[in-house]
Amino acid sequence: MRPFTYESPSSVLEATNPGHPDSAFIAGGTTIVDLMKLEVMKPPKVVDLNALPMRGIEMSPDGLRIGALEKMSDTAVHPEVAANYPVISEALLKSASAQIRNMASIGGNLLQRTRCGYFRDVNTPCNKREPGSGCPAIGGENRMHAILGTSSSCVATHASDLAVALVALEASVRLQSGASERLLTLDDFYLLPDGTPHQENQLLPGELITEIRVPRLPWATRSTYLKIRDRESYEFSLTSAAVALDVNGDQIRDARVAVGGVGTKPWNLPEVREALTGKPLTLETFVAAAKLAVAGAVPLKHNAFKIDLVQRTIIRALIKLGGLA
């Protein structure tokens, strides 16, 4: 680990004026301490966010607000979250381990870095870590990598489960730097790699995520997160689906669908949602809609299985929610 200085400011104003362009925030530390040990991240200054007030989980007529410093564990079992948005609770409880969920913050979760082995190994090239150095995953080991949103520069997946649930629910992040604040949908917040995979999102240097806003969606009580992985627990996804379904008799009134493990960012699927809306609640509807998820998929040597797997993941989540099982 490279040397750094440590500070623990008590106001957002102080924290967002860290005085060093390359300083880094730390919340739970479960991403950044790991990456500093690997020397993937080498901040000269680490700014601890834990004395800041960005906490609280509240439900209002507009929807849900989660302070960025809330822990994954506390958020998952919060009664309002569990009752109104099961997909959020399930995505969190299927993430990492009990210990890591006790440490990790919601804001940090959304900013965790890819688990691509080349990104994590400073002895190999990686365009995300060192722009212009190349992407060995494209012709190398790429079983865990993305099939959607990839470019000739980068094929790494975004690893957050929570983010998949949140883009499905059309959540936004509130950002703050100094006194200026802005609100972005999470879907817009994340960027595709294109030629600049080191720019993963719209966060400016020194800018904070202060809170997450999830719009009110009464029928999200019927929602779920299905995660398929190499082992049953404590593992990142091969594919995952965050799905909410609004059913009226044997008709689908509305839906929300996003997938994980397959995209270079959490992958929202408005086209699948449209293909479900107004259709009969049948397996045929599900199969036809899920096909649209992979319309633009570009498989690599080791991950073509994800094309089928992600469709089946969506279909199985829909079967469960639609009560067809």
Binding site: G29, V33, N102
Partner: peptide, 10 residues
Amino acid sequence: VLSCLTLAVM
């Protein structure tokens, strides 16, 4: 928690 990912100062 995991002590390997916790900074002592924190």
